[in-house]
Design a binder for these strands. Structure first.
Lengths: 254, 254
DNA sequence: TCATGTGAACATGTTCACAGCA
DNA sequence: TGCTGTGAACATGTTCACATGA
């Protein structure tokens, strides 16, 4: 998504491709599971299967980190866990604030995987004064007034936005002004941020729409073969002969 | 993510690039906002700004759908809303089930944007018998036993998994066996599915790790200039002399 | 005149296939 | 012998820059 940097064309050998970075957490998870089962080594084939990618891709990904494998043998699990953790910056402690403690914010706060790997919820922040002081996931919710102080005092550089769409940009601006340089946005809005600030977004609605696109394709291809399952009814019912959509305008300009 | 299809190399002009598909929901959202403000037309420049992309990309994206603009003028808002909705399959009604009604599942069920655009929550399903019958987001939670019947009866083709990681693959298998062909996975696991089934995943932990990677980079670059803000403390604190990590092994083989 | 639509150049990402090393 | 590491081929995605047509 929005990568703030000036995007220099891989100045030295230091540049790990973005696509690779996005897969490192996947490898790390698979490796951690192996580590817990005390498996000493894995082949690229096995690890790739566990991470849900193909082995050529995995080997190429690892080649950007260095030559951490042993030919004819595979990779040392513990060593790889360490190298990937370090590369991802998980040997540091990252305090995180969550802003917007509604249903979703509370769910995120309660999410276990949060604390496990280098991330620590420094504070939960909400604009509703009646939320302030209430315990959520073992923390007391703070009021938005305290946002700047919390970020400063805890050296927070990562913020999670789980507010309604309308409040997101404003919250984002305050986070950035207070020193946050990475934002994970759950609100269904495009955030604008200055250069040097990274934003990643998680959007249920977008994901569903992408799935719907592919579903529709499948339904089309199905028509070539047998109509196996009852296809989802076209809006407004199967029978209707005329324009069925109450939602989608039938406007046709030009 | 996992695109089940055989990936034919754009047989006819029909193939819309995946990257474009992923942006269509963004355009649609921006257009819907314009539509609500009764704006009749937009230029690629304006719409691109609203969607957070550049205008060349937007125009190329739209060119895959057809020539829906007017040279020297721009795009008709209502018309584009309709075309994109249709392309995404949002003129159909998509019944969806959510499996796993914990904190996250409940938050998803309550999420408004769900129902708005063609998606309808057909059922909430949980394995915990004590959850069965409880009202969440205006629906009564069903027990897992009913999963197959619900999917069949409602013609559900899209399933959302919000269970713990351990249960996800099993739930996935049952969904697929019952006829679901698109899955949105919130559980932190790699799901394996047969060909023809699409999986998209949403993973908080992965997103945070990607942000941490870039944060770490920034901290490194910062060292070249002035150490402006106190960098996040290395795990275990600044003082501690011995190995601080209960989590990351300091193993160094070979 | 002005903004769309698009070929061509460029950049990134993936896969193949095999050389090279334990 | 067997698996890693990687150059080279291929595929996808992005940006440029301008011809085109309302």
């Amino acid at each position: 998504m929005a990568t703030g940097r000036t995007h220099r064309p891989a100045t030295r050998s230091r540049g790990i491709p973005e696509a690779t970075v996005a897969r490192l957490p996947l490898y790390l998870r698979a490796l951690t599971a192996l580590s817990e089962r005390s498996v000493p080594t894995v082949s690229s084939e096995e690890l790739a299967a566990a991470a849900g990618v193909n082995s050529a891709k995995l080997r190429k990904d690892f080649s950007y980190l260095g030559s951490y494998g042993t030919r004819g043998v595979g990779y040392d699990v513990e060593y790889l866990v360490y190298q990937i953790s370090r590369e991802l910056g998980l040997t540091q402690d990252w305090p995180v604030v969550i802003v917007g403690i509604g249903n979703l914010g509370a769910a995120l706060a309660n999410y276990g995987g949060f604390a496990s790997r280098g991330f620590r919820v420094a504070a939960l922040i909400d604009a509703d004064p009646s939320m302030a002081g209430k315990p959520v996931a073992g923390l007391r919710v703070k009021h938005t007034d305290e946002l700047e102080a919390i970020i400063e005092d805890n050296g927070v550089s990562i913020g999670v936005i789980a507010t309604p769409a309308g409040a997101a940009q404003q919250v984002c601006d305050r986070l950035v002004a207070a020193g946050v340089t990475s934002i994970l946005n759950f609100a269904p809005t495009v955030l604008s941020v200055p250069d040097g600030v990274d934003v990643r977004k998680v959007d249920l609605s977008i994901e569903l729409q992408i799935l719907a696109f592919h579903e529709q394709r499948k339904a089309g291809e199905e028509a070539l073969a047998a109509p196996a399952r009852p296809a989802p009814a076209v809006r407004g019912g199967t029978a209707g002969g005329k324009g069925p959509d109450g939602d989608v305008p039938a406007v046709m300009p030009a």
